[in-house]
Design a protein around this nucleic acid. Structure first.
Lengths: 301, 301
DNA sequence: CACTGTCCATACGATCCTGTATATCTGCTC
DNA sequence: GAGCAGATATACAGGATCGTATGGACAGTG
């Protein structure tokens, strides 16, 4: 009836998987290399499933067994981090840590003013922003809240729809001044278009929206870089209308022909509903994103 | 850059939440009461969010803060348990632990022969059966595999549909011999019907399938008990056709009028796909449940 | 009211764990 | 090839952690 190895051992196991070496893991955890080594040795002995790593002078290489454990160790680490966040303040206080998972574009272009207002009202609130396009797992509590562009369908989540973001092609005035005029979709072929490089999912969804798009001249998977390229007058690219309209120098290209919509949801784990600061940030995100989405649709008229 | 309290502290925290006392937690974890007390004290000091428990001579009562942490501590414990299971054998060996979450009825009436065959072929396999009607969380890894009656819609899950289970009313021959005859649905009102007691969800789904069902005379939320009551000749109740047909003494009641179907899925976390024993048990469950579902539909013709 | 069982808090000695220091190996650079 | 940087493994002393033992508080029971 042994309930497994000490949880501390799993912590160093996860650190070793991430760092790739005992020394690196020890640095990350504030331990020393001999201690990390002892932990791994103890874990291997306790599991009895053979070695977890093959030692070398260049670090530790995980075995098959260790690789199979990696994702679960990450889940355990995520749970531990979530515990620390939730415990960072009494449940009814408006202070402590809240971790938000958003796409890079929303995080860099849209959220800052919303969060600034929130922090002015509640200086005790500490925000962790997880900027990733791969939707991280709310159930695994990689984050407390998330802004999603695909509908979350998990029943343990509290989800609220806030509308749709308008997407369109834009280019800087200066680029258009020195480039050929654009009267129809066919003209795009003579222009410098900005788009994705290897991100197959994004490329497919673009092709679905605009079937006969010419090949991109400037390619990057980083959408912030795409926006920066558009602003710098490098060519024509896709961006959110509400962001583009802030800058009068950004001109919509064939808005009647090229437009699409991204639905937006705010999501939170149900268990956090009763934690006041989580609920507050959730509501603030709903309000802020609703307002943001609305500016986009107003300007397009 | 402190990464939170020691994970061992979270382990005893969870144990204290479950046990309701330091002593109980210590017993569960193989520690002593002073150690458990020290852990909680250390945790409270590290979090700085006030007390987690109010001490009393009758045990520890969790505060609001502790209650907010309970579900996340459970998630962490589930992750730790999953790690132990996955590590219970090298990934490519057909031995080690597999944890299956199923409903009580399936677990008690349907799975045993399937699992017996599996264990005969692979004696090294160790099976943990989690018999619960509340669908436990596969993403949180409360279990490795699950047999579900509602479609799992989470993208991280590997799901396979195996057909539908036929449900119907049944009664024992001896009960029918001494009771009034049944020629139409209205006759049921004069009979001893067996059904749910307080399980609102099940009652609603029964009412949805058969709107004008008379009030149950014998009530229990335990479906195994319902089946036992039917077999003992206590009255008429709902059960899976494939189970009823094993016993020639169980007679279908108005099969044309009363019948419904429960869809069945086998589900597994995607990450486990590459673990051979998990995949093996998954396939065995798919095969076994497909065969089971088929016997039910063959006998009804 | 005493008795009993269960609980938490505290003191103290033994043990386990950790960190420091050192040896050794490997790959890279000059 | 020497020197360096970074890795793991081992030896040993100090300190943190644990378990044992004990005291006190509370609820239930005869």
């Amino acid at each position: 009836m042994d309930s497994g190895p000490g949880w501390e051992l799993w912590r160093t196991f996860g650190a070793v998987m991430r760092a790739g070496s005992l020394s690196g893991a020890a640095r990350a955890l504030g331990l020393t290399q001999p201690t990390a080594g002892r932990h791994i040795a103890e874990l291997e002995a306790a599991l009895g499933a053979g070695a977890l790593f093959t030692r070398s002078a260049r670090g530790l290489q995980p075995t098959e067994t260790a690789l199979a454990l990696a994702s679960e160790a990450e889940a355990m680490a995520a749970a531990a981090a979530a515990l620390v966040r939730t415990a960072s303040a009494p449940g009814d206080a408006i202070c402590g840590i809240v971790r938000i998972s958003v796409s890079e574009v929303i995080g860099a272009e849209v959220l800052p003013p919303i969060l600034a207002a929130l922090r002015t009202q509640h200086p005790g609130l500490m925000i962790e922003l997880l900027l990733t396009n791969a939707s991280s797992d709310l159930l695994r509590r990689d984050a407390d809240l998330a802004i999603r562009m695909t509908e979350p369908r998990q029943q343990a989540l509290l989800v609220k729809s806030v509308g749709r973001i308008r997407l369109g092609f834009y280019a800087h005035r200066e680029y258009l001044a020195r480039a050929a005029s654009i009267d129809s979709a066919a003209d795009l072929a003579r222009h410098a278009t900005i788009g994705f490089d290897r991100d197959a999912a994004s490329i497919r969804s673009l092709e679905a929206a605009w079937p006969d798009l010419p090949a991109f001249a400037l390619r990057t998977d980083n959408q912030l870089a795409q926006i920066a390229l558009i602003r710098a007058g490098c060519g024509i690219g896709v961006m959110q209308g509400a962001i583009a309209h802030r800058d009068p120098a950004l001109i919509p290209i064939l808005p009647e022909t090229f437009h699409a919509h991204l639905p937006v949801w705010i999501a939170m784990h149900e268990d956090l509903r009763s934690t006041r600061r989580m609920r507050l940030v959730f509501d603030a995100l709903v309000d802020g994103m609703t307002a943001y989405v609305r500016t986009g649709s107003e300007r397009q008229r």
